[in-house]
Amino acid sequence: MAPYQQAVLLGIVLGFLARVYMLRTDYRQYPTYPHGRIIHLALGFIAASLGAVAVPALAERDFTAVTFLTLAAQQFRDVRNMEREMLSKMDRDELVPRGASYIEGIAMVFEGRNYLVILTALLVSMFTYLFHPWMGVVVGFFCLLLDRIFMSGKSIGHIAEIQEAPVHFKGALLYVGDIVIMNVGLSANQNLILEKGLGLILKPKNQDARITLSHLGQRQAILHDATTILGVYRDAGTPALVPMAKLDLEDGRVGIFLLPQDKNIEKAVQLIKRVPILESAVRRPSQAAVNQRR
């Protein structure tokens, strides 16, 4: 087998394995199984093929073939748009929607992981072509470890302390601890909330965390993930029973009100700790020059 054939074949195989490794259907059931997975696996194979052929094409001075990488970039931007559009339409049917920020983050992840596949296939192909197939295999598994690092990010547990808080009323005002959530006028709804409701308070660990938790998209992501796992005790047309997250303007704490079908405070605390921090919600005012002056 010619050296470039080995490089291309190994690059495609390990690049595709990288996409399989990064494609996971978790409790949110997205991408849907099996059709959604088939779409992304097919795109992953295309990405691996593009990355694998780039090095032999350059070695053979076939610079025209490398221009396909620019076409791939456009194609994967279209993938991001496709995911955004699909999830936005699906979000209309959710009792507790993901929100635009969460959807944009998911779409960005799918685009970015295709680029990681191209990079993996490119490096495997390069080291196989220049050195030895075993060197390409070693680089491929190193890239899988690198992909794992890029897949992992910070979660709410890294930036906030989470504690249970009582759900109670003062007149018609619903409180979680000492944080006002909303006005509930009907006594029937109040009784249902007192029976089924669950309250938590998120206390930011620093100023940066306070700004992140104040982001509406981040709070909506917390509510969506919590209700996805614990369920929600409501149906369409019951605005008084909508889970909510309200901000205490004095100290930046966030009161979380849930109406779960599975009223388990330990589960609620653990799952909220694992809610991912959205890239669009991250703010670091502590790193601003004006905040570093003495």
Rank of each mutant, 00 (worst) to 15 (best):
M1E: 03
A2N: 14
P3A: 10
Y4F: 12
A7F: 03
A7N: 05
V8S: 07
V13M: 03
L14S: 01
L23N: 05
D26S: 11
R28I: 11
Y33A: 14
Y33N: 12
P34G: 08
R37M: 12
R37Y: 06
S49K: 12
A52E: 06
A52G: 01
V53W: 00
L58G: 02
A59R: 12
E60W: 07
D62M: 06
F63L: 12
T64E: 07
A65S: 11
T67S: 12
L71H: 07
A72M: 10
K89W: 01
R92G: 04
E94S: 02
P97S: 09
P97D: 06
S101I: 02
G105H: 12
A107V: 04
F110I: 08
G112L: 13
N114L: 15
L116V: 09
V117A: 10
V117L: 09
L119M: 11
L122F: 10
L123R: 04
S125W: 02
F127Q: 01
F127L: 13
T128R: 07
F131Y: 13
H132S: 08
F141D: 01
C143R: 07
L146N: 02
F150V: 12
M151Q: 11
K154L: 13
H158L: 01
A165G: 05
V180F: 09
V180D: 05
M182Y: 05
L186Q: 13
S187K: 15
A188K: 13
Q190M: 13
Q190R: 15
N191M: 09
K196P: 08
K196L: 03
L198Q: 01
G199Y: 00
K205N: 12
D208K: 06
L213A: 02
H215N: 15
H215P: 05
I222N: 00
I222Q: 06
L223V: 01
H224G: 04
D225A: 04
D235E: 13
A236K: 15
A236E: 12
V242L: 11
P243N: 02
M244Y: 08
K246E: 13
L247T: 03
L249I: 08
G255S: 05
I256F: 00
I256C: 02
I256N: 01
K263Q: 13
N264A: 09
E266A: 14
K267H: 12
K267L: 07
Q270K: 15
Q270W: 07
K273V: 08
R274Q: 14
E279L: 13
A281P: 03
V282K: 14
R284K: 15
P285F: 05
A289D: 06
V290A: 11
Q292A: 03
